[in-house]
Design a protein around this nucleic acid. Structure first.
Lengths: 157, 157
DNA sequence: ATCGGTGCAAAGTGTTTGCACAGCG
DNA sequence: CGCTGTGCAAACACTTTGCACCGAT
């Protein structure tokens, strides 16, 4: 699916709920689509959108991200560094997990979904229907690719 | 293990790293131990500690919680509501997961550890050693026990 | 006397809100 | 007009920090 097609699709979702795809929202979406791999903070999104639409205000970016969260277009998450981060998810598939290196803070994504079985178990055993999940591991890579990583080749404390 | 024994043990951990178990820290630990089931925010811990040691300052509670986090006595976490929450973990066993009801915000804990196998796989396939993990599911209970829950018996949107 | 620990208030940081205005039906 | 959306600045909420003091070694 091209970026334009994705925007079109989101536009339909917006319209359906009575919202408009303004220039600001479009610019924000562009940035999110172009940086799908990253987990941008609101501030980072703001900086990037500024390049495309310099007059945009920070509050608008916050409001847009909030709106997109509610529409489940993006997922708001939190790695514990004090800022909310946003991840665009295609088609409600948010099936990835994170490996967070506790030494350098780098985040690697695992694309597979390892939780389907568990979610079925929750439904069966707890009567709990999962709409979203989050699986993050903190630890360290035995050889961390990040040159900044303090842990690489250091003894375990 | 009694509360006193637990405090003793943590005291040893502190002393070993050159920290002291002050009255304030002890009071904070008591509160955490007495509320192991909950995920208290710093503010909540503060309020509760006030009852036991009225002169304590909020900053001290923050500093204590930070310190205990570093010692892995408590785990700092984040349910996305904008406040850090703290969970005391016995013996580095923090093996519980959360079911977060998206309608009423109630949080249920699952005590089992479902991730051991996955962690072994991370070690094997990614050379990533896990020191901590987090597994939360958002969704809804088909019959939520919480009377406040808006979802109970409502159609799925 | 030293040094970690503390309380208080101030500062900091990320996020939200109030308000007047712009834009499109 | 009526209504959503916007930019700006102020307000907010949570957390951290600077500093003078305290208390145990």
């Amino acid at each position: 699916m091209t970026i334009t097609e994705q925007i079109d699709k989101i536009n339909r979702q917006l319209t359906q709920k009575g919202f408009k795809l303004t220039k600001q929202r479009e610019a924000t979406l562009m940035v999110l689509l172009e940086n799908e791999k990253d987990h941008l903070s609101a501030e980072e999104v703001f900086m990037l959108v500024k390049g495309r639409y310099p007059d945009i205000g920070l509050a608008t970016v916050y409001r847009t991200l909030e709106l997109l969260s509610e529409l489940h277009v993006v997922q708001k998450m939190n790695f514990g560094d004090g800022v909310a981060r946003f991840d665009l998810r295609e088609d409600h598939t948010h099936m990835h997990h994170h490996l967070i290196c506790s030494e350098c803070g780098s985040v690697k994504e695992i694309k597979e979904d390892w939780l389907l079985e568990l979610e079925q178990r929750l439904e069966r055993e707890f009567g709990f229907t999962v709409t979203d999940h989050r699986l993050d591991f903190t630890g360290y890579f035995n050889k961390c690719g990040n040159k900044e990583c303090k842990r690489t080749r250091k003894a375990v404390s």
